[in-house]
């Protein structure tokens, strides 16, 4: 098991459910016997601000955070956040990005512009970009609130262990009433890659 520590970042807008995605990941890695660290930010930036969660796993993990050039995978819940955190990706890392756009206040007020063609520009830099309409898939699964689990499904594809491990973790973590929706959301994400 002496593989190097793997680094995954989950980035988005406060309120999008990034914390559930990191919680599910953390649980799955513990299940597989890894040392795990997850770093979250609670409080002020939760309110519609840019949020980031770091998940690290391997034989022994020291720092709880991921720095520029260190992430193997970035899961972005929104395109502008994908652009903001791009420098944290390893040059040969994978960016999984939902294609939704949410204007931040400086764009709404007209003080700044939302950049054009974010994902194509990132691709042009030679980065492997997986673009996905997670909101549509979540809606198809039964609830837009399962967008986070769709994105987890996409990421699970690149993390290399059995789908059942993930589904077990999803079942044991989400509220009982939402299990069916979340299972479906995960499956749709996993199949979409």
């Amino acid at each position: 098991m002496s593989q190097p520590v793997k680094n995954i970042m989950i980035v988005g807008v406060g309120g999008q459910g990034t914390l559930l995605a990191s919680k599910l990941m953390g649980k799955a890695f513990v299940e597989k016997g890894f040392d795990v660290k997850v770093s979250e930010v609670h409080g002020m930036s939760q309110r519609g601000g840019s949020v980031v969660t770091y998940v690290r796993y391997g034989e022994k993990v020291y720092s709880p955070v991921i720095e520029k050039g260190e992430a193997d995978i970035i899961i972005a819940f929104e395109q502008l956040e994908a652009a903001r955190w791009l420098p944290y990706l390893k040059p040969d890392g994978i960016l999984i990005s939902d294609n939704q756009k949410i204007d931040p206040m400086p764009v709404i007020t007209g003080n700044s512009a939302y950049p054009d063609k974010i994902l194509p520009s990132i691709r042009e830099k030679g980065v492997q970009v997986i673009e996905i309409d997670a909101v549509a898939l979540a809606t198809a699964a039964g609830s837009i609130r399962a967008t986070n689990v769709v994105l987890l499904g996409v990421a699970a594809h690149f993390l290399g262990f059995d789908k059942e491990v993930w589904l077990d973790v999803v079942r044991s973590t989400v509220p009982p009433k939402t299990i069916a929706i979340n299972e479906k959301a995960f499956e749709l994400g996993f199949a979409a890659k």
């Binding site: 807008v13 652009a83 990706l89 206040m105």
Partner: peptide, 11 residues
């Protein structure tokens, strides 16, 4: 590491 050339508005 890689970065885009465009300015990224704060959130």
């Amino acid at each position: 590491h890689i970065a885009l050339d465009q300015a990224i508005p704060p959130r």
